[in-house]
Write a protein that binds this DNA or RNA. Structure first.
Lengths: 121, 121
DNA sequence: CATCTTCATCGTCTATCGACGATAGACGAT
DNA sequence: ATCGTCTATCGTCGATAGACGATGAAGATG
């Protein structure tokens, strides 16, 4: 479904979505899973279980988090589930963080504490 | 292929630390706080409370999370606490995410599911 | 059919988050 | 000294995260 793809997909990342993705990224095991998916390009849950010292159900949960955050795609194949990293989404996330950081760095105006203006995120 | 420049402070961000910072970033209110701190350069807790629809104790907690993550500095001043955004740390965090993403994108080797190698994060 | 494999889901447990109000400490002002 | 302000912390609460084992569904395979 190609609903919308206006140029860079990074800029259409609402703050809420970015927060969700960062939440998905902010876990050591999920980072490892991502790297493994990146190295393997695509693989199934069982493969991931073998690498991490975690129960299968736990890995399944972590994968679900990553999928719901949009960082990983999943496609059923036979009795398996093939997980594939979404590099675009990952790049968009990095871009989102960079944009947030730049927004924070590009506003060095020495505004006092009483300044009543804060830009909506 | 060591393309990394050891001069960047981003590289000395261990995965655990990066995860912590992303966790700190993965909250809508804390994003707003960061942006407000960026716009105000430095301000106190009370100022932040006025902007967000949160209790003072809650804001104090969020600020604590940001400080512990190293994204914000705090300095006591009289009866106040002056909070100041750490742009370097913020930049390092963005760099860390970018590095993670690039690591995931720069490994497009079509390794099969059975490949027994996964690089340590 | 019977069995094995793979996976998602359910239930459970503990720990932590995120919010609040209340409170105490530190300080300035009166 | 007393009051008001600002802040951090405590205690509490419901919700969620993160882990596990058990179970069942869906396909293989025998």
């Amino acid at each position: 479904m190609k609903m919308l793809s206006p140029a860079t997909s990074a800029e259409c990342l609402p703050a809420e979505r970015l927060a969700e993705r960062l939440g998905a990224l902010s876990h050591r095991k999920r980072m490892e899973i991502l790297r493994y998916l990146a190295a393997s390009d695509r693989c199934c849950c069982k493969d991931v279980v073998g690498r991490l010292d975690l129960a299968q159900s736990t890995v399944s949960q972590h994968l679900k988090v990553l999928v719901e955050a949009g960082l990983v795609r999943v496609k059923p194949d036979r009795q398996r589930s093939i997980y594939e990293i979404d590099r675009e989404a990952l790049a968009a996330t990095a871009q989102g963080v960079t944009a947030l950081v730049e927004a924070c760095c590009d506003e060095p105006q020495p505004v006092g504490c009483t300044e009543p203006r804060i830009r909506e995120l």
